[in-house]
Each structure stands twice: as structure tokens, then as C-alpha cells.
Amino acid sequence: MIAAASIAILTTIGIVLSLVFNTVEFFRLYNAWDFFFGVEWAPSFSGRGGASELGVLPLLWGTLYISIVALAVAIPIGLFSAIYLSEYASPRVRAIAKPALEVLAGIPTIVYGLFALLTVGPLLVSVFGEGGYLGVDWQGGGRAVLTAGIVMGMMLIPFVSSLSDDIINAVPQAMRDGSYGLGATQSETIRQVVLPAALPGIVGAILLAASRAIGETMIVVLGAGAAARLSLNPFEAMTTVTAKIVSQLTGDSDFASPEALVAFALGMTLFVLTLGLNVIALYIVRKYREQYD
């Protein structure tokens, strides 16, 4: 049984070793400085020769940008849903709406990916594209930051809403009574008393959602595109760390080439990033708890 329990540790060690080992191998072939600070991502196809540009910055920017769009969709919708469900909704509405939102979390990401590629992308083009309803020509193709971001936001709604819902419910009723007793309306009570009290938990929920967004793969592989670029235009296709891990490791390239090994360095970056976010999330939650205990 101790052995079984240790599998968790072995897995972590396995992850770290397989990442570190191959990453070191990569940095032997490719300059680490150029990887972390290069603004160009242009791998040459293996076997054809020519030097590859493997700068991680455009990929990180794409990851970050898409995650921000996703959170901009998920946070307001998820948070307001949670507030309504826990403070206003009748038991009947709650019994229907809460599971309905949670279904969104149970759907496999490949479904969202396909939805982004085949439904949301074309829909956005028909609004923002050439000859669209708005008469503007902003979006060239279905794959774009906005496409992936919106769909990922959809996926994250239940993460934000059900965690926040639990946290808001955990705020003691005495706190609400204190506010009502002073003549506050329900919305004043929620905004000025309940939410500040629930803030640490909500911040934790949002950081966990952010970590989910950064590590999400299928939606960006199918919805965001393959072009690595540093741009602010949400209608343009961009790519992410996860999407490039997939494309660098699913080709026929030889495992010893920098073009394949770079995927491990990307995986390492991703691992450190998400782990860091989780640690920060836990730290913030603990700090706030100490303050209000």
C-alpha cells in the first residue's frame, strides 16, 4: 500500500525527469538565451537543413492572450451566475441551472475544439469578416485568438461558478444579517460584505481557472491557429505553448533534433507556469484566511 501511495511521487519524479533530461539535451543544441528571449518562432522542418528560430515569447504571448480572453468571458459569467444561484435563486431554479452549467465542465475538450473550429470560428467570420453583418473586414479566418478564447471561456464558466458558489455559501449568515440589520439592500450586502469575505476563495478559483486555461490543448490546437506571432489583434490567428508541443512532437521529426526537443523545453515552461500558479493560489487563500480567522 505504501508502494501504491508512492506512485504519485514516482509520477511527479517521472514528469520532472523526462522534462529536465530532454530540456537539458535541447539546451545543449540550442542557446537557452535565444529560447527564452527570442521573439521569432520559425522551426525549419527536419531534414531540410537550415537553422530554426525557436523563441518562446510569441508562444507565451499567444497563451497569455487567449487565456485573458477566456477569463474575460468566464469570470463575469461564472461569478454572476454563482451570486445569483447562491443568493437569489429559488431552490427550483437552482436545481435546474446549477447542473446545467456544470454539464459544461464534463464535456471533453475535443468537443470544444471542434465547436471552435466548425461553429464559433465561421460564426465570428460571418460577423467580423469580409462581407459580414458588421460590414468590417477584421477577421480573415475562423481560427483566431477570439475564437479559442470565447470557447475556452465557455469551458471555464463552471470552474469559476461552482467553486465560487461553494465559497459564497460558506460565508456565515451572521455576516449577511449584520448588513441587512443596518438597512442594506441585498445587492449592497453581496457587493460590500459577502464578496469581500469570499474574495480569497474566489481569487483561488480564478487562479485555478487560469491554470486550466494555460494548460488547455485541444481548443487551441483546433481553434487558435498555427501561426506564432506577437500581435494585439484578437482577430488574428495565434498559437500557444501547448499547440506547439503537439505540432513539434506529432510530426515525423527525429527525437534528437532541436525541433523535437524544443517541445520538452516548452513542456517544462508549461509545467513550471501552472505549478507556480497553483502554489500562488494556495498561498493567497491561506493569507486571506489568516487575516479573517
Binding site: A174, D177, G181, G183
Partner: peptide, 12 residues
């Protein structure tokens, strides 16, 4: 106005 059984200061 009302004062309650358990002191319930707001988290402010």
C-alpha cells in the same frame, strides 16, 4: 438598528 448574538464585524 440591530445588534446580534455573535459579534459579526464585516471583513473590513
Amino acid at each position: 438598528g440591530m445588534v446580534f448574538q455573535k459579534p459579526n464585524p464585516f471583513p473590513k
